[in-house]
Design a protein around this nucleic acid. Structure first.
Lengths: 207, 207
DNA sequence: ACCTGAACACCGTTCAAGT
DNA sequence: ACCTGAACACCGTTCAAGT
């Protein structure tokens, strides 16, 4: 008995064992087009053209899919930061990276929220995500050590300084996405500028 | 022009007393005991001992309940900051408030996540929440203006500085809750200390 | 005026069965 | 080996009906 049901957009990866990647791509598309609340296991399966149970061949549960999506986000973020750093040099590096970081959050708001959302917060059981996300901190820290070597900023624990900077950038992205900085009479770029300047002055003064 | 503060709804005696307040209290209890994912409309109704449909007499939808819970959180946060500021004076104020802020996030992690979660992020339609949450920024700004008047920090737009500090504190709470600062060899208190110092130095240097 | 019970559409997850 | 269809328990929301 032949079934005449023809799926509209069956991803070609379907038959080649690439369903895992196809699901992540579908998830990224849903996030971009419909926001964080659209990131459901059934919705992603639907978008990928497979049954609701199919994702369980590739992800232990919904959290595992969300973690994979978050990982992909951290890779994109790191790439954006790296790109910004390569275009700058010396003292300007930190500012350029800061701008790129905040820009990434505003260009991919739903993705960014997933990356730092409660669903993947406890990543004790998600070693891949832990590694990918901690690369952000390491990246900032290396940059700070170069600034220290160049004498642009004072001595001090670079890990602590890196955590400070990351906290600053993360908070700025989240609060501005939430509209909490709307009352301040500055554009986002101006805020990033002001913020980076305060941080640079503060770290320069450390002995 | 008299700004009219419209009271939400006069508490009236229901069968359960004030069911609206009871639901919010139940929600806070669920958050504390079981985390953010336990904040469901049906679960809250169950915890309050009413039917699943009863909350709709008091909240338009789930989002309205979440917003009310977030509002309560911002009131608690502001109270903690105010209390810390009153115990300190002068330059020490900022540090004490910063410690109190971060402490609040770590004592009420699930509540804090709800306050800044995506469900209430777009608060264009939640004027009460908008007002309550923006009070945090105003509080910090007033403190900064006092520091400026005392000459402890340099000139500069206090609103921008306040946004910078709030971003810093918010990012620190979120990243430390997510375990992202675990790699840094410092305790949370030490991180707050380092962070506050950098900010104070940075703002002192502004001319 | 306030609340209940049933209903609907949706979701995460499991499992026997199909290819 | 990989996927499907059905099933279960849960959720948000609506609505007629009860007190």
């Amino acid at each position: 008995m032949p079934s005449k049901r023809t799926p509209k957009a069956l991803p070609r990866a379907y038959h080649h064992g690439d369903l895992r990647s196809a699901l992540i791509q579908s998830a990224l598309g849903l996030l971009r087009d419909e926001g964080p609340e659209a990131l459901t296991l059934r919705g992603v399966a639907r978008a990928a053209g497979v049954s609701q149970a199919a994702p369980y061949r590739h992800f232990k549960d919904r959290r595992a899919l969300v973690a994979a999506v978050a990982e992909e986000g951290f890779r994109m973020l790191q790439s954006a930061m790296l790109h910004a750093a390569q275009k700058a040099d010396g003292r300007l590096g930190l500012k350029q990276v800061a701008i790129a970081y905040v820009q990434f959050g505003h260009e991919h708001p739903a993705e960014y929220r997933i990356m730092f959302g409660p669903e993947v917060a406890r990543h004790d059981e998600l070693p891949d995500l832990r590694e990918t996300s901690s690369a952000v901190l390491a990246f900032v820290q290396v940059g700070l050590e170069q600034l220290q070597a160049a004498g642009s900023i004072g001595a001090g624990d670079p890990a602590a300084m890196a955590a400070t900077i990351w906290s600053m950038l993360h908070g700025l992205v989240m609060l501005s996405l939430d509209g909490q900085t709307a009352g301040v009479g500055l554009t986002l770029d101006q805020l990033v500028d002001e913020t980076t300047r305060i941080m640079m002055f503060g770290m320069a003064s450390r002995t």
